[in-house]
């Protein structure tokens, strides 16, 4: 895996095929934690960390345990268990080390377990047949893409708080329409020739 491939992989994950705005992975936390900038940023960082660690861990599990034993079909349960344990560890670590952030994120941390983006990137790594470095980089890049999307989105939503919105659209509907516009903007990256 040379530098150029890694770079194009990262650019792909962040811009061209942004996990949230193009691949529809990670919508729940994207819509749920994006009301304020700081929580959005905190969530983003946690996700980057978890996604990178999860990519590495699931790669090792797949490469050294599941595939040699022919247990490929157990991939989903095995991966999700690894991710759940990882999130538990992150939660415990944050509680001790950065209690402020832990308090701010509150219930959203366990939500990272059920964040489709984390399981999604783990499975995509196996589908793309990336090696350990490639998987970790792709995981990190996907997390960065998620953070980019959620931060952009949070800034828009903070502004939306002060505008007049039709009653039926208050809350999620207007957020979704906004996300649609963001997604259209990101479609502009389509022409970027960064694929392998």
């Amino acid at each position: 895996m040379n530098m150029t491939t890694l770079l194009s992989l990262s650019l792909g994950a962040i811009l061209v095929e942004n996990f949230v705005l193009v691949k529809f992975l990670g919508i729940c936390p994207f819509l749920g934690v994006s009301k304020k900038m700081d929580t959005a940023l905190g969530m983003g960082f946690s996700v980057v960390f978890v996604m990178t660690a999860a990519s590495a861990a699931t790669f090792c599990l797949n490469e050294y345990a599941l595939t040699p034993l022919g247990l490929g079909y157990m991939q989903t349960p095995a991966f999700i268990l690894v991710i759940a344990s990882l999130v538990q560890l992150v939660e415990m670590f944050l509680k001790k080390a950065v209690p402020a952030l832990y308090g701010a994120l509150g219930i959203y941390l366990p939500l990272i377990t059920t964040n489709c983006a984390v399981l999604g990137v783990a499975i995509l790594n196996t589908q793309k047949e990336l090696d350990l470095l490639g998987s970790s980089v792709y995981g990190a890049a996907a997390g960065i893409g998620f953070t980019l999307a959620i931060v952009l989105f949070a800034s828009v939503r903070e502004r939306l708080e002060f505008t007049d919105i039709p009653a039926a659209f208050e809350g999620f509907p207007i957020a979704l329409v906004t996300a649609a516009l963001l997604s259209m903007a990101f479609m502009g990256f389509q022409g970027l020739q960064v694929f392998k």
Partner: peptide, 25 residues
Amino acid sequence: LLMGLAPGGFITLGFIIAAMQWALN
């Protein structure tokens, strides 16, 4: 074609939830 792509998904869901909220209100 946009409806079959990502933005179409977001916008359709947004309108459906809005319709639902309007009806329930």
